[in-house]
């Protein structure tokens, strides 16, 4: 890694900070517009108005918004994400507990969609207008058109309810003890502890959620890889080089492959966002106790600290992945770092 690359990486990191700060402010402002009274939530369904008032003071909900924001940022700087109003636990603990479930689901889905999507996308572009291309075009267009919650429900209906061969939801069988926690990801932990029973159960539970989640992103990545490769194919310099008499095969390797990889790596950032968003729905459908389900519950329950926490985490994760993508791109294509 040379110096200009390092400078570029640093620059990108510095750039990410105001984005996350802005995100925080955005979410914070919206969260205070939510109609429900946060103090009444803390107090619980049986509380009297006096109790609600006391809690309002305790949590300083009566302060002006900017003051509340500063208070929040200050605490955040100390690594304190506050407490979930509803569960009474530290948001940080909630997030740590839920994160591995979502990470596992997302990783499996991402690997699935890349392994299938990228090769198919390149193939479709190179064999443009072949039967394969048309077939893939149909499949990917369909993949982007299916509502993932509906796909999940249909898969449940068919495979779980009618055929009875896959579980309906959850991460592991009811009567199976989860593997000893090392990473929190059941499949990995089961492998590490050589727990065959847990491995089998966790893997079986992973099938439907990961397929559902991967379906849309598989379609996206195929589609974008195809059009990415096509864009390159149609760019003038390739035509030029062909005109200059370079053998087509060399042209393909020299430009196409590299540019296809660039296009794909670029898509990983988008893909990650897609998957992250998908988890909210998929986890709701499959009762997957991860961040997506947590985020949804936090939002419908107007659990402010939790919303801020999970949004922050999603934002940081997304920004980080995109940062890594950019840096990876600059490694593949050093010209990027110069701009």
């Amino acid at each position: 890694m040379n110096r200009s690359l390092l400078i570029y990486a640093c620059k990108r990191v510095v750039y990410a900070v105001p984005t996350i700060l802005g995100l925080l402010v955005l979410v914070f402002v919206i969260s205070r517009v939510i109609p429900a009274d946060p103090a009444a939530l803390v107090a619980g369904e049986m509380a009297t108005p006096q109790q609600v008032e006391a809690l309002r003071k305790q949590y300083r909900f009566d302060e002006p918004l900017p003051v509340q924001l500063v208070l929040y940022l200050k605490r955040l700087a100390k690594g304190d994400m506050g407490k979930s109003l509803y569960s009474g636990r530290k948001v940080f603990d909630d997030l740590v507990d839920r994160f591995p479930a979502t990470l596992e689901l997302t990783l499996v889905s991402m690997v699935l969609s890349i392994l299938i999507g990228v090769p198919l996308g390149i193939l479709a572009a190179l064999k443009r207008n072949s039967v394969l291309d048309h077939l893939l075009r149909g499949v990917t267009v369909a993949g982007l058109a299916i509502a993932s919650f509906w796909l999940g429900i249909m898969l449940q209906l068919f495979f779980s309810m009618w055929l009875g061969i896959t579980p309906l939801g959850g991460r592991i069988g009811m009567s199976v003890d989860p593997p000893a926690s090392i990473t929190g990801m059941y499949i990995l932990d089961a492998l590490l502890t050589l727990n065959g029973r847990a491995l089998w159960s966790a893997a079986v539970h992973m099938i439907l959620p990961s397929l559902t989640l991967a379906f849309a992103s598989f379609a996206t990545i195929t589609r974008f890889t195809r059009s990415g490769v096509l864009d390159v194919v149609q760019q003038d310099f390739i035509t030029y080089e062909r005109a200059m008499g370079l053998p087509p095969r060399l042209v393909i390797y020299k430009y196409l492959l590299r540019n296809a990889i660039i296009a794909t790596v670029t898509q990983i950032g988008l893909l990650f966002g897609l998957l992250l968003a998908g988890t909210v729905v998929i986890e709701t459908v499959f009762d997957w106790p991860g961040l997506g389900l947590y985020a949804f519950n936090a939002i419908v329950l107007s659990d402010y600290q939790a919303i801020l926490g999970v949004t922050l985490l999603a934002g940081i994760a997304y920004v980080t992945v995109n940062l890594l993508v950019d840096i990876a791109l600059s490694l593949i294509d050093p010209r990027k770092a110069e701009t």
Partner: peptide
């Protein structure tokens, strides 16, 4: 609306 929202609003005559 959700239970927490409704039960929260139900505590104040205006809301």
């Amino acid at each position: 609306e959700t239970w927490p929202t409704l039960s929260g609003k139900a505590k104040d005559m205006d809301t």
